[in-house]
């Protein structure tokens, strides 16, 4: 018993250290956003600002309308994308999980193949902009991320086929329930853990997506919060590293300060941290069965 107690202590100490290592850069970022700009350039980033300042946040507050709109867009695409993506994935995964489904192997391979092969950026872009006219629409921020590739579908399928007892489905069918009713009344409620897991993954990927915005959106009023962040950082980098003849210094004057960048990052992180605990309950459970076999 004594050694076991000892083991627990070691385990806790190790885990506390590791957790701290994960948390630590976030604290630095958070403090930097509250540090006076001159203090950052003079003394560097630190855990305790030599001079506190909320300048960065008041600077952002001045752009409240831009920020609010970007937030709105991020929230909107995250909600719609997660719900629709989850629905399509589950609908696709369920028949694939049924051992009696005709041409199941072929269909599963078609899903699996998308994991390994893709057509590349330019053709994808042309399909969306030319066949579907999605440039500069909210759809362009939603549609390309719905399934991205078949990975989530395969995870859900594994969950269905391992954790939903076939006899329940069969008896429901014999009792005269339609396939849709079975799916809706029996399969989905039994699969909450995996749905929550995939839901969280979709939420994270929509919330953090900057790439689709970079490709499909040129209209500033459609920028998501990540696009605002990304353009700020990458514009700075571009001006630092590329020559535009004599003109770059004029452009450089419009670059926001260190602390503002940090404050933007904080604003980008906080919401995802807030919703995470609500999903976490299901997270491990969902992966338990889902991940056993892709």
């Amino acid at each position: 018993m004594k050694t076991n107690q000892m083991n627990q202590t070691i385990v806790h100490i190790l885990l506390i250290l590791l957790s701290a290592a994960c948390l630590f850069p976030f604290l630095l970022l958070f403090m930097a956003s509250f540090t006076d700009e001159q203090a950052i350039v003079q003394h560097g980033y630190s855990f305790w600002p030599s001079e506190f300042s909320v300048d960065a946040y008041s600077y952002l507050w001045n752009q409240a309308s831009t920020m609010a709109r970007s937030y709105g867009i991020t929230v909107l695409i995250t909600i719609i994308g997660t719900v629709v993506g989850l629905l399509i994935s589950a609908l696709l995964a369920y028949p694939l999980s049924r051992k009696d489904m005709p041409i199941r192997g072929l269909l599963a391979f078609l899903v699996f193949f998308t994991l390994l092969f893709n057509g590349g950026l330019v053709p994808t872009y042309l399909v969306y902009t030319e066949l579907f006219n999605m440039k500069n629409t909210l759809l362009a921020l939603i549609v390309p991320g719905l399934l991205t590739n078949g990975f989530f579908v395969l995870l859900i399928r594994s969950f269905f086929s391992t954790s939903i007892p076939v006899p329940i489905i069969e008896s429901a069918y014999i009792d005269g329930a339609t396939e849709f009713k079975i799916f809706y009344r029996i399969v989905l409620p039994l699969s909450l853990p995996i749905l929550a897991t995939i839901g969280l993954m979709l939420t994270i990927s929509y919330w953090n997506d900057w790439f689709n915005g970079l490709i499909y959106i040129t209209e500033p009023s459609l920028y998501s919060i990540q696009n605002l962040l990304n353009r700020m950082l990458s514009n700075i980098q571009f001006l630092q590293q590329n020559s535009l003849g004599g003109n770059s210094s004029q452009a450089a004057a419009t670059i926001p300060m260190n602390s503002v960048r940090m404050a933007m990052a904080v604003i980008g992180i906080v919401p995802i941290l807030c919703i995470y605990p609500f999903f976490q309950k299901y997270f491990v459970k969902g992966l338990t069965i889902g991940a056993v076999k892709g």
Binding site: V122, Y125, E130, L214, T218, S234, Q237
Partner: peptide, 17 residues
């Protein structure tokens, strides 16, 4: 207006489409 960091990529795509 197209951000300078996205410029090459965007113009490539715009002109290809």
């Amino acid at each position: 207006p197209i951000d300078v960091s996205a410029w090459t990529q965007q113009t490539n795509l715009l002109l290809a489409g």
